[in-house]
Design a protein around this nucleic acid. Sequence first.
DNA 1: TCGCGTATTATGTCTGCACATAACAATCTG
DNA 2: CAGATTGTTATGTGCAGACATAATACGCGA
Lengths: 233, 233
Amino acid sequence: MNTQEINNWQAVHEEVRRRIHARDWKPGDLIPNEADLAREFGCARATVNRALRTLADAGLLDRRRKAGTRVALHPVGKAVLDIPVIRQEIEGCGMAYSYVMLDRITEPAATSQQARLRIRAETPLLHVTALHLADGRPYVLEDRWIDIAVVPDATNAPFDTTSANEWLLAQAPYTHGDIAFSAVALPEMAALALKARPAAAAFRIERNTWDNDRAVTAVDLYFAPGYRMQTQL
Amino acid sequence: MNTQEINNWQAVHEEVRRRIHARDWKPGDLIPNEADLAREFGCARATVNRALRTLADAGLLDRRRKAGTRVALHPVGKAVLDIPVIRQEIEGCGMAYSYVMLDRITEPAATSQQARLRIRAETPLLHVTALHLADGRPYVLEDRWIDIAVVPDATNAPFDTTSANEWLLAQAPYTHGDIAFSAVALPEMAALALKARPAAAAFRIERNTWDNDRAVTAVDLYFAPGYRMQTQL
DNA sequence: TCGCGTATTATGTCTGCACATAACAATCTG
DNA sequence: CAGATTGTTATGTGCAGACATAATACGCGA
């Protein structure tokens, strides 16, 4: 027999997962309560709790107090994307990373940035444009705005060898942010920098980060055509 | 004073987060060990453990046995994407969902599908093409291949009113999968179905799901131009 | 000085118990 | 009978103590 004791939370996790998968417990079914499972598996309720909580986090179970635990109707695929620092992403693929700053000026916020960062028109922003390369080939174009009022040190940072990306991570903490992925026709200037055909389909990431209610920075990343962002389910 | 007792894991979580944010503990710093923190906060080590574990899961801390816990150098943004059923995604936006099946044939696997699903050439696949609409406008084109050998019931499913998407979720369990996001120029047939300009930049999701080592299904989703996939950090 | 085994230490997890909290069920009251 | 009150139940979380595990630090011998 392979029925060794199920006395750690990973084993409980796996066994419950197996039962769901084997359709012993079908979507929508109420499963036994923690105390019963603990007794069945011969472990403490806390152990069962941890396993079920983890499964609920993963979207396989729905749990409600008193109502009990049931198998999720729609096992919502939750994909966890790591958003790595670009340098690490490139080096992680075994390619040589290099970086070129293309432009760096201080300018009043454009209308689109005002809305995005929820700032007033006269706010001066530091606008940095840079290119990240993998094995010498353009990989992604970084178009970034930084609120100088929130990150005053940025005025003195040259960004000529270290990307704003990494500098900000190390220097400017943030409390939350939002991120959006989309496909766009490459603007002409971006195409030029990336050595791609203008209007080619490019993967874009827009990201804004906030320190409490103050916008720290907004970035647009235009990836060279062919880029794929991949993960496991 | 607002120094009320920190005796639950959320409070510890918040306090640690605050200290990281306030740069009391800077990126790379070793923070006090669990036992010390528990003493400081006046709670049990298990409580501190849960808070720190959660923060580590979120990517803010790096933990290694014996080496201790340190503030992550690169607070890797881990974006958790919900991959909802398309119908729910549309209805969640307050739009009316509708669905049209465009095509449904059984055919031998094309070379590209063979590689993707790791199957032999002669394997027959059920190929279903369908359109999901929001408020009557094309939203996403679903191009799906199903291995009949793995999901025999699929042969009898008409897929004319319920999308293969939902049918599979309810009928065919899977153990794992992979998903990739990219931008592509819309193929002519897809553009036609989506009523978009051919070669327009479209957001594409490729997803493969597996039941242990057998491929269940592969799907390509072509979203209508303008689609944005969004989440919080 | 170099290598290797051992001691130390921080995290990882289990147990058994307790109480908190949410939600549904049953019952009481006007 | 309607609406409020109370009871019951399942999950959520806390605590103290124990042992497991991994990785570093130290000391010993060649």
